[in-house]
């Protein structure tokens, strides 16, 4: 793809992302940030491509370390975001559950 199109992709993604993310309330800013951590593991795509293209063992090693680090982001980030969101949301469930507990 031509550099021009690639730059357009970046600009459009940036602007769309900005619009959508502006609606996230400050209550959810920490989960938003850790979700972004997880998404930033997307660099694993670059690392995979670069490593498969690389020739020297040193480059393959560097690339593999990069893949491991990025995958850490993906799994750690999404999992911790999930836990946090469940925690924030969880109170509602508890609140709903409480009257039932009292009835019992």
């Amino acid at each position: 793809m031509s550099p021009f199109i690639l730059i357009c992709v970046f600009v459009v993604a940036f602007l769309l992302g900005y619009r959508i993310i502006s609606n996230v309330p400050s209550l959810l800013h920490t989960p938003l940030m850790s979700g972004m951590n997880a998404l930033s593991g997307v660099i694993v795509l670059g690392a995979l491509t670069a490593t498969t293209l690389a020739g020297s063992p040193l480059s393959v090693l560097l690339g593999a370390v990069g893949v491991a680090l990025a995958i850490t982001n993906v799994f750690g980030g999404f999992d911790v975001t999930h836990k946090m969101l469940r925690m924030i949301e969880g109170k509602n469930r508890q609140k709903r559950a409480r009257p039932e507990l009292l009835d019992a």
């Binding site: 550099p3 992709v9 992302g17 993310i21 972004m36 660099i43 670059g46």
Partner: peptide, 18 residues
């Protein structure tokens, strides 16, 4: 940009904007 991957560029742009 360097590896020419549009998905990486788009997601990177979203994170940058966030």
């Amino acid at each position: 940009f360097a590896v020419g991957d549009p998905l990486l560029i788009a997601i990177g742009g979203i994170i940058g904007s966030s």
